[in-house]
């Protein structure tokens, strides 16, 4: 492998920053949903599906970062 063990571990740590970025995204989605839902509670129930889809899309990217981190940690860096 071209990437040596120590460097791969540093890369894994850097890739894990992506999880934090995804956390910001998830927080934005949920916070905006809550803000909208408190303004118009009667419309909130119909939008829960959209909320979960948005959460899933935001969260998936964090999971990708986590996967890259795991790959660097255990598959590449060994």
């Amino acid at each position: 492998m071209a990437i040596e063990g120590e460097l791969a571990h540093i890369g894994a740590g850097l890739a894990a920053i992506g999880s934090g970025a995804a956390a910001i995204g998830v927080g934005t989605v949920a916070g905006n949903y809550l803000a909208g839902a408190l303004r118009n509670p009667s419309a909130a129930a119909g939008q829960t599906a959209t909320l979960f889809i948005g959460l899933a899309f935001a969260e998936a990217l964090g999971i990708f970062a986590f996967l890259v981190s795991l790959l660097l940690m255990f598959a590449v860096g060994g």
Binding site: A56, E59, A60, I63, F64, F66, L67, L70
Partner: peptide, 16 residues
């Protein structure tokens, strides 16, 4: 790809 990795990644991440 994202459809399947989302599920596997979430479950795997939680258990790890």
């Amino acid at each position: 790809v994202s459809h399947s990795i989302r599920l596997a990644g979430n479950i795997m991440a939680g258990h790890a």
